[in-house]
Protein backbone atom coordinates (compact mmCIF):
# COMPACT_ATOMS: atom_id res chain seq x y z
CA UNK A 1 0.00 0.00 0.00
CA UNK A 2 1.29 3.43 -0.97
CA UNK A 3 0.84 6.48 1.13
CA UNK A 4 1.39 9.89 -0.32
CA UNK A 5 3.17 12.71 1.45
CA UNK A 6 1.55 16.07 2.05
CA UNK A 7 3.60 17.67 -0.71
CA UNK A 8 2.75 14.94 -3.22
CA UNK A 9 -0.98 15.25 -2.56
CA UNK A 10 -0.78 19.02 -2.65
CA UNK A 11 1.04 18.89 -5.99
CA UNK A 12 -1.45 16.42 -7.50
CA UNK A 13 -4.37 18.53 -6.30
CA UNK A 14 -2.83 21.64 -7.83
CA UNK A 15 -2.12 19.88 -11.14
CA UNK A 16 -5.66 18.51 -11.36
CA UNK A 17 -7.06 21.91 -10.42
CA UNK A 18 -5.22 23.43 -13.36
CA UNK A 19 -6.80 20.66 -15.46
CA UNK A 20 -10.35 21.21 -14.26
CA UNK A 21 -9.81 24.97 -14.56
CA UNK A 22 -9.08 24.47 -18.26
CA UNK A 23 -12.06 22.16 -18.60
CA UNK A 24 -14.29 24.79 -16.99
CA UNK A 25 -13.05 27.30 -19.51
CA UNK A 26 -13.93 24.95 -22.41
CA UNK A 27 -17.35 24.24 -20.92
CA UNK A 28 -18.03 27.93 -20.37
CA UNK A 29 -17.18 28.54 -24.02
CA UNK A 30 -19.86 26.03 -24.98
CA UNK A 31 -22.60 27.37 -22.72
CA UNK A 32 -21.59 31.01 -23.00
CA UNK A 33 -21.84 31.36 -19.25
CA UNK A 34 -19.64 31.03 -16.23
CA UNK A 35 -18.82 27.45 -15.25
CA UNK A 36 -16.99 26.79 -12.02
CA UNK A 37 -15.12 23.53 -11.56
CA UNK A 38 -13.04 22.79 -8.52
CA UNK A 39 -11.42 19.65 -7.19
CA UNK A 40 -10.52 20.71 -3.69
CA UNK A 41 -8.79 17.54 -2.59
CA UNK A 42 -7.15 14.38 -3.86
CA UNK A 43 -7.04 11.19 -1.87
CA UNK A 44 -5.41 7.86 -2.62
CA UNK A 45 -7.46 4.84 -1.62
CA UNK A 46 -7.77 1.16 -2.38
CA UNK A 47 -10.43 0.17 -4.87
CA UNK A 48 -12.85 -1.18 -2.27
CA UNK A 49 -12.59 2.04 -0.24
CA UNK A 50 -13.43 4.06 -3.36
CA UNK A 51 -16.52 1.91 -3.84
CA UNK A 52 -17.57 2.53 -0.25
CA UNK A 53 -17.15 6.27 -0.68
CA UNK A 54 -19.24 6.30 -3.85
CA UNK A 55 -21.93 4.17 -2.31
CA UNK A 56 -22.22 6.41 0.72
CA UNK A 57 -24.38 8.59 -1.48
CA UNK A 58 -27.88 7.19 -1.22
CA UNK A 59 -28.20 6.98 -4.97
CA UNK A 60 -27.21 3.77 -6.63
CA UNK A 61 -27.75 4.86 -10.21
CA UNK A 62 -24.74 6.45 -11.80
CA UNK A 63 -23.69 8.12 -14.98
CA UNK A 64 -20.08 7.39 -15.83
CA UNK A 65 -17.81 8.53 -18.61
CA UNK A 66 -14.63 6.53 -18.91
CA UNK A 67 -11.44 6.77 -20.92
CA UNK A 68 -8.36 4.60 -20.68
CA UNK A 69 -5.08 6.47 -20.88
CA UNK A 70 -1.79 4.77 -21.63
CA UNK A 71 1.75 6.07 -21.65
CA UNK A 72 4.45 6.16 -18.99
CA UNK A 73 1.70 4.76 -16.81
CA UNK A 74 -1.74 3.43 -17.52
CA UNK A 75 -4.89 4.77 -15.91
CA UNK A 76 -8.55 4.17 -16.35
CA UNK A 77 -10.18 7.53 -15.73
CA UNK A 78 -13.83 7.80 -14.76
CA UNK A 79 -16.08 10.78 -14.25
CA UNK A 80 -18.91 9.62 -12.03
CA UNK A 81 -22.11 11.51 -11.26
CA UNK A 82 -25.30 10.29 -9.64
CA UNK A 83 -27.70 9.89 -12.56
CA UNK A 84 -29.98 12.77 -11.57
CA UNK A 85 -26.99 15.12 -11.33
CA UNK A 86 -25.84 14.05 -14.78
CA UNK A 87 -29.27 14.82 -16.24
CA UNK A 88 -29.20 18.19 -14.51
CA UNK A 89 -25.82 19.01 -16.07
CA UNK A 90 -27.04 18.09 -19.52
CA UNK A 91 -30.20 20.12 -19.02
CA UNK A 92 -28.19 23.14 -17.93
CA UNK A 93 -25.66 22.76 -20.73
CA UNK A 94 -28.07 22.00 -23.55
CA UNK A 95 -30.70 24.51 -22.53
CA UNK A 96 -33.75 24.69 -20.30
CA UNK A 97 -36.12 24.75 -23.25
CA UNK A 98 -35.10 21.30 -24.34
CA UNK A 99 -37.80 18.73 -23.86
CA UNK A 100 -37.15 15.53 -21.97
CA UNK A 101 -37.62 13.57 -25.21
CA UNK A 102 -34.99 15.62 -26.94
CA UNK A 103 -32.75 15.38 -23.96
CA UNK A 104 -32.88 11.63 -23.77
CA UNK A 105 -31.83 11.43 -27.40
CA UNK A 106 -28.67 13.35 -26.78
CA UNK A 107 -27.82 12.98 -23.15
CA UNK A 108 -25.44 10.14 -23.83
CA UNK A 109 -23.35 12.06 -26.32
CA UNK A 110 -23.51 15.38 -24.49
CA UNK A 111 -22.49 13.71 -21.24
CA UNK A 112 -19.79 11.83 -23.10
CA UNK A 113 -18.38 15.09 -24.40
CA UNK A 114 -18.49 16.79 -21.01
CA UNK A 115 -16.61 13.84 -19.51
CA UNK A 116 -14.18 13.88 -22.41
CA UNK A 117 -13.41 17.55 -21.80
CA UNK A 118 -12.83 17.08 -18.08
CA UNK A 119 -10.82 13.85 -18.27
CA UNK A 120 -8.65 15.02 -21.19
CA UNK A 121 -7.98 18.28 -19.34
CA UNK A 122 -6.86 16.47 -16.19
CA UNK A 123 -4.56 14.11 -18.06
CA UNK A 124 -3.10 16.77 -20.34
CA UNK A 125 -2.37 18.91 -17.30
CA UNK A 126 -0.40 15.96 -15.87
CA UNK A 127 1.26 15.43 -19.24
CA UNK A 128 2.21 19.11 -19.62
CA UNK A 129 3.66 19.45 -16.19
CA UNK A 130 5.54 16.12 -16.25
CA UNK A 131 6.59 16.55 -19.91
CA UNK A 132 5.15 13.18 -20.87
CA UNK A 133 2.44 12.07 -23.27
CA UNK A 134 -0.51 9.70 -23.26
CA UNK A 135 -2.68 7.84 -25.73
CA UNK A 136 -6.33 7.40 -24.96
CA UNK A 137 -9.46 5.60 -26.01
CA UNK A 138 -12.54 7.60 -26.94
CA UNK A 139 -14.88 8.34 -24.06
CA UNK A 140 -17.56 5.82 -23.27
CA UNK A 141 -20.72 6.82 -21.45
CA UNK A 142 -22.85 4.52 -19.36
CA UNK A 143 -25.81 4.82 -17.12
CA UNK A 144 -25.99 1.99 -14.69
CA UNK A 145 -26.07 0.76 -11.17
CA UNK A 146 -23.07 -0.16 -9.12
CA UNK A 147 -22.75 -3.68 -10.50
CA UNK A 148 -22.36 -2.57 -14.08
CA UNK A 149 -19.59 -0.10 -13.36
CA UNK A 150 -16.07 -1.15 -14.16
CA UNK A 151 -14.71 0.41 -10.99
CA UNK A 152 -16.48 -2.35 -9.14
CA UNK A 153 -14.97 -5.21 -11.08
CA UNK A 154 -11.27 -4.38 -11.37
CA UNK A 155 -8.71 -6.44 -9.58
CA UNK A 156 -8.02 -6.19 -5.88
CA UNK A 157 -4.59 -4.66 -6.22
CA UNK A 158 -5.77 -1.53 -7.95
CA UNK A 159 -5.32 1.87 -6.38
CA UNK A 160 -7.64 4.80 -6.95
CA UNK A 161 -6.80 8.48 -7.01
CA UNK A 162 -10.11 9.99 -6.05
CA UNK A 163 -11.11 13.61 -6.57
CA UNK A 164 -14.36 15.18 -5.61
CA UNK A 165 -15.48 17.64 -8.28
CA UNK A 166 -17.80 20.54 -7.60
CA UNK A 167 -19.38 22.00 -10.69
CA UNK A 168 -21.40 25.21 -10.65
CA UNK A 169 -23.42 26.10 -13.75
CA UNK A 170 -26.19 28.70 -13.74
CA UNK A 171 -26.07 28.85 -9.94
CA UNK A 172 -26.62 25.15 -9.51
CA UNK A 173 -23.95 23.25 -7.66
CA UNK A 174 -23.52 19.70 -8.84
CA UNK A 175 -21.22 17.19 -7.24
CA UNK A 176 -19.43 14.28 -8.77
CA UNK A 177 -16.17 12.39 -8.59
CA UNK A 178 -13.20 11.72 -10.80
CA UNK A 179 -11.47 8.39 -10.30
CA UNK A 180 -8.17 7.30 -11.72
CA UNK A 181 -7.75 3.55 -11.42
CA UNK A 182 -4.12 2.52 -11.47
CA UNK A 183 -2.27 -0.74 -11.05
CA UNK A 184 0.45 -0.84 -8.43
CA UNK A 185 3.09 -0.62 -11.17
CA UNK A 186 1.36 2.38 -12.78
CA UNK A 187 1.02 4.06 -9.43
CA UNK A 188 4.77 3.74 -8.85
CA UNK A 189 5.46 5.23 -12.28
CA UNK A 190 3.12 8.14 -11.59
CA UNK A 191 4.86 8.79 -8.29
CA UNK A 192 8.24 8.60 -9.98
CA UNK A 193 7.12 11.29 -12.45
CA UNK A 194 5.76 13.38 -9.60
CA UNK A 195 8.91 13.11 -7.48
CA UNK A 196 11.07 13.90 -10.48
CA UNK A 197 8.99 17.00 -11.14
CA UNK A 198 9.15 18.15 -7.51
CA UNK A 199 12.90 17.55 -7.44
CA UNK A 200 13.38 19.51 -10.66
CA UNK A 201 11.56 22.44 -9.08
CA UNK A 202 13.71 22.15 -5.98
CA UNK A 203 10.65 21.25 -3.92
CA UNK A 204 11.43 17.81 -2.59
Amino acid sequence: MFTLGEMQLDALAEIFNIGVGRAASSLSLIVNDEVLLTAPEVILVRREQAIKLLLSAELQQFSTVSQTFSGPFEAQALLVFPESNALEIVRLMVGPHMSIEELSEFEQEAMCEIGNIILNACMSSLADIFHISFDSTLPLHRFGNTESLSVFEGNEEQMVLLLQVDMVISQQCIQGHILFLLSVASMSSLLACLDQYLAAQGLS
Partner: peptide
Protein backbone atom coordinates in the same frame (compact mmCIF):
# COMPACT_ATOMS: atom_id res chain seq x y z
CA UNK B 1 -11.42 29.42 -34.74
CA UNK B 2 -11.68 29.70 -30.98
CA UNK B 3 -14.19 26.87 -30.88
CA UNK B 4 -14.02 23.58 -29.09
CA UNK B 5 -13.13 21.96 -32.44
CA UNK B 6 -9.92 23.96 -32.52
CA UNK B 7 -9.14 22.88 -28.97
CA UNK B 8 -9.89 19.27 -29.91
CA UNK B 9 -7.48 19.46 -32.87
CA UNK B 10 -4.80 20.86 -30.54
CA UNK B 11 -5.52 18.05 -28.09
CA UNK B 12 -5.10 15.44 -30.84
CA UNK B 13 -1.90 16.87 -32.32
CA UNK B 14 -0.24 18.24 -29.21
CA UNK B 15 -1.46 15.86 -26.48
CA UNK B 16 -2.40 12.79 -28.58
CA UNK B 17 -5.81 12.74 -26.93
CA UNK B 18 -9.08 12.00 -28.73
CA UNK B 19 -12.19 14.18 -28.42
CA UNK B 20 -15.85 13.91 -29.17
CA UNK B 21 -18.06 16.86 -30.11
CA UNK B 22 -21.71 16.07 -29.55
CA UNK B 23 -24.55 17.45 -31.66
CA UNK B 24 -26.39 18.46 -28.50
CA UNK B 25 -23.63 20.89 -27.57
CA UNK B 26 -22.34 21.94 -31.00
Amino acid sequence: AGSRLEQAIEHAIHDHLPSLLSPALH
